[in-house]
Simulated assay, not measured.
Amino acid sequence: MKALLKCIPILFLCTYILTRGINMCTHSKAQKLIAGLLFSAAGDIFRTTSTQLYHFYGDSMFGLTHVFYIWMFGAEPLNLLAGFYLMAIGTIYLLFLNRCLWDQKPIQWTTYIYISLIGTMAWRASAGALFNQHWSWIKLSGTIGGMLFMVSDFTYAVSMYCFPASNFGLIAATYYAAQMLISLSAVNTKSQVIKK
């Protein structure tokens, strides 16, 4: 029941996308978005179980979510400055988290992979708006969504492996807001470019 309740907002997002009249055969972003949302719902199911093995499965599902989101956001524009900025944030976080995972080698290496994936996803989500003169509200929505996903998962990892950093409310609020903003940025293709 707890797993089902966690999945309901994600399933609502899937329903929202499917009822917008988007042609799923031609709208490749919507296809990748739906796949990412479904993998994140599977990750929520695994993460609600108590054993460490199921937490690993849950993190694997979220890793696949980020792979689909990276694919959805694409490689253009490249925006290396945003990439370096997010890499610096990820490195600081990794050094902090490494102290908590020093004696847990299998989890330590999977955490490195996961941080690389979510960092890349946040980079691709923010490439159109962060340090970019030509941005739009839709691209800004994706940027904020990617950043909130990082905040949610980083807080979750610190609470899981280091010390209780937050209650479930903050993690859930940032996670669901991130999924909503990423979904809105993917399905709304028309946006007015705002020049500074």
Score class of each variant (00 low, 15 high):
residue 91 T to E: 04
residue 117 L to M: 12
residue 100 C to A: 14
residue 142 G to C: 06
residue 115 I to N: 04
residue 76 E to P: 01
residue 114 Y to R: 00
residue 83 G to Q: 08
residue 119 G to Q: 07
residue 91 T to V: 13
residue 143 T to K: 06
residue 69 Y to L: 10
residue 109 W to L: 14
residue 88 A to Y: 08
residue 103 D to P: 04
residue 92 I to H: 04
residue 107 I to Q: 05
residue 142 G to K: 02
residue 83 G to M: 13
residue 55 H to E: 07
residue 67 V to H: 04
residue 89 I to Q: 05
residue 52 Q to N: 10
residue 132 N to R: 04
residue 128 G to D: 01
residue 90 G to Q: 07
residue 133 Q to H: 12
residue 139 K to D: 10
residue 140 L to M: 14
residue 62 F to W: 07
residue 117 L to F: 14
residue 97 L to C: 05
residue 100 C to Q: 02
residue 90 G to N: 08
residue 52 Q to D: 11
residue 123 W to D: 04
residue 64 L to M: 13
residue 96 F to P: 00
residue 53 L to R: 09
residue 58 G to S: 08
residue 76 E to G: 00
residue 94 L to G: 08
residue 103 D to G: 00
residue 75 A to G: 06
residue 102 W to R: 13
residue 57 Y to F: 13
residue 52 Q to C: 06
residue 77 P to G: 05
residue 97 L to S: 05
residue 56 F to D: 11
residue 77 P to Q: 02
residue 138 I to G: 06
residue 80 L to I: 14
residue 107 I to W: 05
residue 96 F to N: 00
residue 64 L to A: 13
residue 59 D to P: 01
residue 132 N to S: 14
residue 88 A to I: 10
residue 144 I to N: 04
residue 101 L to F: 05
residue 123 W to V: 08
residue 143 T to Y: 10
residue 62 F to Y: 14
residue 129 A to F: 09
residue 111 T to E: 00
residue 76 E to W: 15
residue 120 T to E: 03
residue 52 Q to H: 10
residue 100 C to V: 01
residue 70 I to D: 07
residue 64 L to C: 11
residue 124 R to M: 07
residue 98 N to F: 07
residue 77 P to V: 02
residue 104 Q to D: 14
residue 126 S to M: 04
residue 74 G to M: 12
residue 145 G to Q: 05
residue 120 T to L: 14
residue 87 M to C: 11
residue 106 P to A: 07
residue 142 G to S: 06
residue 98 N to H: 12
residue 69 Y to M: 04
residue 122 A to M: 06
residue 140 L to G: 14
residue 82 A to G: 11
residue 93 Y to F: 15
residue 119 G to E: 05
residue 138 I to L: 06
residue 120 T to I: 09
